[in-house]
C-alpha cells in the first residue's frame, strides 16, 4: 500500500509461536517494522517501553494466567503512552472486552478483532491502518451481536438502515459503505441521516465521532438491560 511512508514501528504480542511468526511475516510484508515479537504481557510492556512503537498488536489471552492479561496490558499501555494505537486480537467475541478497550482514551486508535480476521490479509492490514489513523475498529461480530437485540428504537429501523448502522459501527466512511452495499453515496447519506434521527444521535460527518456515538448507543442499551 503506502510503500513510500516510513515503516510503522510495531510491537507484537502473541503466545502461540506459530501465529506470532506468521503475523510478524505478514506485517513485514506490508511494510510494518516489527521491533519486537513477544509471548506474554510482561514482555509486551517492556518491549513498548524500549522500542516506543506506534502500534501494538496483542493477543488478549496470554501467560501466565491465560485470562485477559493482553487486554489489561493494552488498556494500561494506552494510559501510559497517549497516542499509541492498539489492536487486540481475541479468540472469542466478548462485548465486555470490547467495552474495556473502547472506554480507554475515548476509543481513538483502538481495535478489537477476532483472531481469524488476520486470514483476510488485506482487509486486516487496512483495519490496522485505520486504527493508526486514530480510528476505531470493532469486529463486525460484536456489532452484529449488539444489533441483534430487538429494543424499541432499533426496531423502528428498516432492514437497510440496520445494515447501514452495522457498517457505521464498524467505522466505514460513507463512500466505503456505498461500495460495500452497492448503493449510491447520496443514498447512504440519506440513510445515515434517518438512522441518527431515529436514534436521537447528533448528526455528524466525522466518521470517528459517528462510530463512537453509535457504539455508545448500542452499548448503553446493553447496560440498560
Amino acid at each position: 500500500m503506502s510503500v513510500e511512508a516510513p515503516a510503522v514501528r510495531t510491537v507484537l504480542a502473541e503466545d502461540g509461536v506459530l501465529l506470532r511468526e506468521g503475523l510478524a511475516g505478514l506485517l513485514e510484508r506490508f511494510g510494518f517494522e516489527v521491533a519486537a515479537a513477544v509471548g506474554d504481557a510482561g514482555a509486551l510492556a517492556a518491549a513498548v517501553a524500549e522500542h516506543r512503537p506506534r502500534l501494538v498488536v496483542t493477543d488478549i489471552r496470554m501467560p501466565p494466567g491465560f485470562t485477559d492479561e493482553g487486554l489489561r496490558a493494552a488498556v494500561a499501555l494506552r494510559r501510559e503512552h497517549p497516542g499509541l494505537a492498539v489492536v487486540a486480537l481475541s479468540q472469542y467475541v466478548e462485548q465486555s472486552y470490547a467495552a474495556d478497550l473502547l472506554d480507554s482514551e475515548g476509543g481513538r486508535g483502538v481495535g478489537y478483532l477476532l483472531k481469524e480476521r488476520v486470514a483476510d490479509v488485506q482487509e486486516f492490514v487496512g483495519q490496522l491502518r485505520r486504527v493508526l489513523d486514530g480510528g476505531t475498529v470493532v469486529d463486525p461480530e460484536v456489532v452484529r451481536q449488539l444489533l441483534r437485540r430487538n429494543r424499541d428504537p432499533l426496531s423502528r429501523l428498516s432492514e437497510r438502515e440496520r445494515e447501514v448502522l452495522g457498517e457505521i459501527a464498524e467505522g466505514h466512511s460513507n463512500a466505503a459503505i456505498a461500495g460495500r452495499l452497492h448503493v449510491s453515496e447520496a443514498a447512504v447519506g440519506k440513510h445515515i441521516g434517518n438512522i441518527l434521527a431515529k436514534l436521537d444521535l447528533p448528526p455528524s460527518d466525522d466518521v470517528h465521532r459517528r462510530v463512537m456515538a453509535v457504539l455508545a448507543y448500542l452499548r448503553s442499551g446493553a447496560d440498560r438491560r
Binding site: 503466545d15 506459530l18 501465529l19 506468521g22 479468540q91 481469524e116 488476520v118 490479509v121
Partner: peptide, 20 residues
C-alpha cells in the same frame, strides 16, 4: 485454544498470504 484453534488461524493466514 492453544492447539487446534491456534493452528487453524495460522493456516488460514498462510492461505491468505498465498492468495496474494
Amino acid at each position: 485454544h492453544d492447539g487446534a484453534q491456534q493452528r487453524l488461524v495460522a493456516l488460514s493466514m498462510q492461505l491468505g498470504l498465498a492468495r496474494l
